[in-house]
């Protein structure tokens, strides 16, 4: 664990951390420190929960080399917002059915949270959520990306996400004919 002790910011954060044991300090790949409620971190992230339980949390900033500061800021932001949000009544009452895996639509604030992110920030956040085992955040961000695909043609999706078309013309034509109902221009 590398700790940049010379940094004023770090010491300041550590003081706060010592004063209030309810938080954990996380360090991004570029050395910035963020603080998040221990309870929220443990509840939302399986990886952080494991680290907290296993005692591998560093008071000077747990190093998360995989996550850039922007993404980590969003992660922390999400954790804080999640702690403050009251789940809407509609979501609680919608009972889970017998024949399906339970899943919840993103709530209003979660939609707003991902809507304001830039293209790159959104995908960075997906990676961070994946790395930290944050199921709900992964759910919300993936949902947002799928929203970006819905209603688009393959061409548009390729364009939006910059993907190389490696189908042959014949293959495309075959699939389009087989599944013509998925295209409105039939």
């Amino acid at each position: 664990m590398e700790v940049d002790k010379g940094k004023g910011e770090a010491e300041e954060t550590r003081k706060v951390a010592e004063a209030d044991r309810d938080t954990v300090t996380l360090k991004s790949s570029d050395g910035k420190l963020f603080e998040v409620s221990k309870e929220a971190a443990a509840r939302l992230s399986t990886v952080l929960a494991g680290m907290i339980a296993g005692g591998s949390i560093d008071d000077n900033g747990t190093d998360l080399k995989q996550i850039g500061s922007e993404a980590l800021e969003n992660v922390v932001d999400y954790c804080n917002k999640h702690a403050n949000s009251i789940p809407s009544a509609a979501l609680i009452s919608s009972s889970i059915s017998f024949n399906t895996a339970p899943f919840k639509e993103p709530e209003e604030w979660e939609r707003k949270f991902v809507d304001r992110l830039s293209h790159d920030a959104l995908f960075d956040l997906v990676e961070a959520a994946n790395f930290l085992g944050m199921e709900r955040l992964l759910d919300v961000t993936c949902h947002k990306i799928s929203e970006m695909m819905k209603g688009k043609s393959p061409d548009q999706i390729r364009e939006v996400f910059n993907i190389k078309n490696d189908y042959t013309k014949e293959e495309l034509e075959e699939i389009r004919q087989e599944l013509a109902w998925a295209f409105y221009d039939d």
């Binding site: 759910d139 993936c142 949902h143 990306i145 799928s146 695909m149 819905k150 209603g151 688009k152 043609s153 393959p154 999706i157 390729r158 996400f161 993907i163 190389k164 078309n165 490696d166 189908y167 495309l172 699939i175 389009r176 599944l179 109902w181 998925a182 295209f183």
Partner: peptide
Amino acid sequence: RLDSPTWLVRAALVS
């Protein structure tokens, strides 16, 4: 999470 077979088929044509 595409939530509709239509969108799934279209996505499958991406690559």
